[in-house]
């Protein structure tokens, strides 16, 4: 173990430069986040991830955000274990009918101000599962969505771009609700 730790000290870091927030997402957000002045959240956001019925592909890429290449915590973004600690709900999957109540209850358990990010193509509109008897559709069918990050699954860089865009925008505005 000592050798591994020592090597980690002398090797250059793997962590890559911060990706620029996606311009289209910023425009999208500016439109959505309401006009009320914001209370500072201290330049950080706590994220609660909810799988509302995904194939787990999105979860794999969200997990990857924690590795040394992306190191999401350096941006003040942090995954938390409870919706009661969260500012942001990061929701994946087409929302299945069996997950509807769990998603609603998790949303209601999250204190305001709060933002909802729908990650992945399924979360946008149900993706290829839209129209199934067991699927409600995208996340916005159940809770209001502030930002959508596309991809099947979205790559970690796309996820970072979206979340950084959200953080920069949310430093200016709070959602109107």
């Amino acid at each position: 173990m000592r050798k591994l730790l020592f090597e980690s000290l002398i090797r250059p870091p793997l962590t890559e430069p911060r990706p620029d927030p996606d311009l289209s997402m910023i425009a999208d957000l500016a439109g959505r986040l309401g006009g009320v002045a914001r209370q500072k959240l201290g330049r950080s956001l706590s994220i609660r991830e909810i799988d509302a019925g995904s194939c787990n592909g999105c979860e794999l890429e969200i997990h990857a955000l924690g590795n040394a290449f992306y190191d999401i915590e350096r941006f003040g973004l942090r995954f938390v274990a409870s919706p009661r600690h969260a500012d942001v709900l990061l929701v994946t999957g087409p929302v299945t009918k069996n997950m509807r109540e769990a998603l609603e209850r998790t949303y209601n358990a999250t204190p305001a101000p709060k933002w909802v990010v729908a990650a992945g193509d399924c979360a946008a509109d149900g993706g290829c599962f839209a129209g199934s008897y067991a699927v409600l559709g995208g996340v916005s069918a159940v809770v209001p969505v502030d930002l959508h990050i596309p991809g099947c699954p979205p790559s970690p860089v796309m996820l970072l771009k979206g979340l950084i865009a959200l953080m920069e925008q949310s430093n200016r505005k709070v959602p109107s609700r």
């Binding site: 799988d51 019925g53 999957g93 069996n98 997950m99 599962f129 008897y133 067991a134």
Partner: peptide, 25 residues
């Protein structure tokens, strides 16, 4: 059963290349 998406019902009636997308997911 929380993530039940009705994959088998959706595959029924689909051409093999479209059904393959469900298998991949």
């Amino acid at each position: 059963g929380y993530t039940h998406k009705g994959v088998e019902a959706q595959m029924a009636g689909a051409a093999p290349d479209r059904a393959a997308q469900f298998a991949a997911r």
